[in-house]
Simulated assay, not measured.
Amino acid sequence: MPDTRHASISVDQFIPAPPAKVWDALTKPELLARWWAPGDVSAVVGHRFHLQMPGWGSVPCEVLEAEPYERLVYTFNTTWTLTWRLVVEGKGTRLLLEHSGFDLDDKRDRAAFERMGKGWQGTVLPRLAEVAAAEG
């Protein structure tokens, strides 16, 4: 039986930059801080890092998968997972994000789930696109 308490957000964003530039925006701390949050990210499986998130403080993360220019997966707090997939599309990159692990029975998780889909789609990923395109 499927677990209906947990939910995911999926976002699809075209970025007019090659996968290498998008990868850099996801994995270089100085670029990550420009579009999302300061943090000591590194694309090395097992790397533990923190993102400094407004309203959440220092959020612990751990890299689970890192396939350069194709896929980056890391935990975000103790229950969520961010999966970033990069797909070449023309002269740009199709970025597919899945933010999973929201426990809809938990008040804070439910509130985050209800607002983060719009935030990823309308604010955060468009800023990532701007940073990656500017780096090209």
Rank of each mutant, 00 (worst) to 15 (best):
M1A: 13
M1K: 00
M1I: 13
P2E: 08
T4R: 13
T4W: 12
R5T: 13
H6K: 09
S8I: 03
I9L: 15
D12T: 15
D12P: 04
Q13L: 09
F14N: 02
I15L: 09
P16L: 09
P18R: 15
K21A: 15
K21S: 10
K21W: 02
W23Q: 06
D24H: 03
E30W: 09
L32C: 07
A33C: 04
W35D: 06
W35N: 08
W36L: 14
A37M: 14
P38G: 13
G39Q: 09
D40F: 08
V41S: 05
S42Q: 13
V45Q: 15
V45C: 12
G46S: 02
G46K: 00
G46W: 00
H50E: 11
L51C: 11
M53Q: 08
M53T: 02
G55N: 06
G57W: 06
G57V: 05
S58P: 07
P60N: 03
C61I: 05
E62D: 01
V63G: 01
V63A: 03
V63E: 06
Y69K: 03
E70I: 01
L72A: 04
V73F: 08
Y74F: 15
Y74M: 08
F76C: 06
T78N: 14
W80R: 14
L82S: 12
L82F: 12
T83V: 13
T83A: 14
W84K: 05
R85E: 14
L86D: 03
E89Q: 12
E89T: 08
G90V: 14
G90Q: 11
G90A: 11
K91I: 07
G92F: 03
G92H: 03
T93E: 02
L96M: 14
L96G: 00
L97R: 05
L97E: 10
E98T: 15
S100P: 04
S100L: 13
S100A: 15
G101I: 14
G101N: 11
G101H: 06
F102S: 00
D106Y: 02
K107F: 12
D109G: 10
A111G: 02
A111R: 09
M116F: 12
G119M: 03
G119K: 01
W120F: 01
W120C: 03
G122F: 02
T123L: 06
T123V: 10
T123W: 02
P126H: 02
P126E: 05
R127N: 12
L128P: 12
A129V: 08
A129I: 07
V131D: 00
A132K: 13
A132Q: 12
A134C: 04
E135T: 07
G136A: 14
